[in-house]
Amino acid sequence: MSVTGHVTKVENTAVAMPPQPAPESPVAPESEAAVESAAAPEPGAAAAPSPDAARPTWLAPVQRTAAAVGWGLLGGLLFVGLWAVVAYRSGDLPSPSSAFSTLIDLLADPFRDGGETDKGIGLQLAISLGRVFSGFALAALVGVPLGLLIGGSRRAWQAVNPVVQILRPVSPLAWFPLGLVVFKDAPNAAVFVIFVTALWPTVLNTAAGAASVPEDQHNVARVFRFSRFSYVRNIVIPHALPSVVTGLRLSMGIAWMVIVAVEMLSGGTGIGFFVWDSYNASNLSAVISAILLIGCIGVVLDCLFLWLSRLVGAKESGQ
C-alpha cells in the first residue's frame, strides 16, 4: 500500500470541470454576504455610517446585514430593469411583469397532474430532483469505494487513471444514446447520464483525499500493523471525508445543470422537458419562470452540501 501522493495532481479537478456554483458566487446566503462585506471594503460597507461610540455593539452586524440585503436588492432591481428595457426593445422577450405573473400562475397549483405531459411545475421539478438524486446516489455508491481503492493503491490508480482521464472531459450528454440502447427507456437513460456526470468528480476527489494520507499516519499503521480494514476505516476514510464531501458537492452542482439538458433530449417529463415544451408552445414566460426556479433549487442544493462539508470539516479540527 504505497500511497505517496501519486494522485496529488487531481486536486485541481475543480478547475477542469464545467463551471459550478462557487461558494463565493453572488448567490451566497445572506450571512456570507454580510461577512464578506465586513472583510472587504466594499462600497456598501464604506457607505454605512461609521459606528458611534454610544451605539450598542449588536447594532453593527445588523447594520452590515441590512446593507448587504440592501445592495443585493438594488442589484436585483437593476437586473430586472435592464431586462425590462431589453424586453421592451426586442418585443420577442416577455417582460418581467408577464414572467412574474406566469410564475405566480404556475406556482398556484404546482402539483397538478393532468396526465402524460400536462403536469404542474412543482411535479416536474420533483421528477427531475428524483432523477438527479437517483443518479447521484448510484454515483456515490460506486464512486466513493472506487476512489478509496485507487487513492490507496498505486497499481489501481495506474489501471483506472487513463480511462478516467479520457472519459472525464466528455460531455455527459454523449452517454445518452448508450443509455437509451441499454435501458430502452428514456427516463432511465437520463438517470444513467446523471450517474456518469456525478461519477468523475466523486471518484477523483475521493481518490485525492485517500492518497494524501500523511506519512506519519501511514507509519503508525505500519508500525502497529493495522489490518487493511482497520487502516481504511481508521485512517483513510476519516482523512478523505472532507474531500469526499467536496466531490459530492461538485457532482451535485453539475448534475443539477445537466439534468435540464438531458430532459430536453429525453422528453416526456421533468423540468428540462417543461422548458423545451414551453418553448415549443411559444410560452417564453414559462421558460423564464422555470429558469428562476431551477436556479433557486440549485442554490438550496449547494447550501445543503456546503453545510455538510462544514460539518465534516469541523469534525476534522477535533471539535
Partner: peptide
C-alpha cells in the same frame, strides 16, 4: 511527533 490518529 507523537503521530496520534487525529480522528480517534
Amino acid at each position: 511527533n507523537y503521530s496520534l490518529l487525529p480522528r480517534l
